[in-house]
Design a protein around this nucleic acid. Structure first.
Lengths: 221, 221
DNA sequence: ATCAAACTAGACGCGTGGGTCTAGTTTGTC
DNA sequence: GACAAACTAGACCCACGCGTCTAGTTTGAT
């Protein structure tokens, strides 16, 4: 949570537990919370899934609420790292822009459609009324950062003459929307497994539309 | 649920309650479920919010699960009706297409950003693991129908020469995505009130991009 | 006026689950 | 080997909430 580090040294002052156990608990907590929802999830179940005694859970985390926050934060950090790695591939180097954008689009879609990614979004949506601060943890550190990184790349591409995005942030926002929107309906909120071929088609369609609007070359047809 | 009727005659065989009470319970149930989540929501609270005794709730609905399903179904029906009414405005008549699309886009955004609409989506996301059939109730009767109705309109517009949508379903899907995607980030999953001016800007940007890709007239700049 | 169905307020049984505690075991360190 | 911190299994307390039940009241139809 507190930066770009995946996890590890965030042991709160009082807790003195083994680190591997802590990680196992976080993983199990996320899994169970995502599967059953916060209220339905039992700490007993989380402990069992982590292969740990219930008391150990309370040794590492103050209470159930705190456990939820930390589990979500860890998962969001991981998801953001994957997304940022993909965006980094959209460099300003030469080569076929369309092909590179389709590649990036497809990889972003794979991140987006990952089971844990869906689970995170569903969990966030469901518990956001009870825990409004979850939104800051996830959005402030994940979604917005990715879109802005994408906007940076698009600004560079515009300066280089490969694109004409008057407002790079809007362009990035729309590119993401063209990917995630169709993916959302197609995967039925993450309950359906979307075959890779379909993801490729979505990415191609998104890039098509995007380049018609923001491409430098006047693509006829 | 069972058709296009808003509600009314769906009284299940055994239940014999007054209809207005039933509706009050459904409204209250949706409100409370959306606010606190299924597991946290208490039937006592729902009954109180509806101004009704708890026993009356169980007189109309078998149990808590059934109440959730019916409440979601009613809410989804209402939301779909509003959406369909908006889509119906995109007729094939003459006039400035861009202006008409911006109008429809804005109205769709207002539906999408409505508080009850957000509540429905959040509730659905959060409880979808526990109640997978909620997805069929909502998607089968709302989201897909709206997109398809929009696709129909776009096909008509293409035939009329006002648009060139090779695949109307993809075009409709992308138009919706260009609206809802930005709206989702802007409103932070429905927790932030988006001013109307911002919605207008989102609609304009969406129509800009959409027409660059699918417009018939070669809009230069 | 009469009767039955719907409704109300409130109590209650009962299962579930958060969080604590105890007693005993493992693990790392010096 | 000795010591302390971490861990385990399980019992335990207690609050909460679903669903039922009872006894009495309102409502609508004839």
């Amino acid at each position: 949570m507190g930066g770009t580090r995946t996890s590890g040294d965030r042991r709160s002052p009082g807790a003195r537990g083994r680190i591997d156990k802590r990680q196992a608990i976080l993983d199990a907590a996320f899994t169970v919370f995502a599967r059953e929802g916060y209220a339905q999830a039992g700490v007993d179940v989380i402990a069992a899934e982590a292969g740990v005694a219930k008391a150990t859970v309370y040794n590492h985390f103050r209470d159930k609420e705190n456990l939820l926050r930390e589990a979500v934060a860890a998962s969001a950090d991981q998801a953001m790292a994957e997304n940022m790695a993909v965006v980094g591939r959209l460099s300003t180097e030469d080569g076929d822009l369309r092909a590179r954008m389709e590649d990036v689009g497809l990889r972003l879609l794979r991140c987006y459609c990952d089971e844990r990614s869906w689970a995170l979004r569903r969990l966030l949506s469901g518990e956001i009324n009870q825990f409004p601060d979850l939104l800051d943890i996830v959005h402030g550190h994940a979604v917005d950062r990715v879109t802005e990184a994408l906007a940076d790349r698009m600004a560079r591409l515009t300066v280089a003459g490969a694109l004409r995005a008057r407002d790079p942030l809007v362009a990035a926002e729309q590119f993401v929307a063209l990917l995630t929107g169709p993916a959302e309906t197609r995967s039925r909120l993450g309950t359906r497994e979307v075959p890779d071929a379909e993801l490729r088609a979505v990415a191609r369609a998104a890039v098509d539309t995007f380049l018609q609007a923001f491409g430098a070359e006047t693509t006829d047809r």
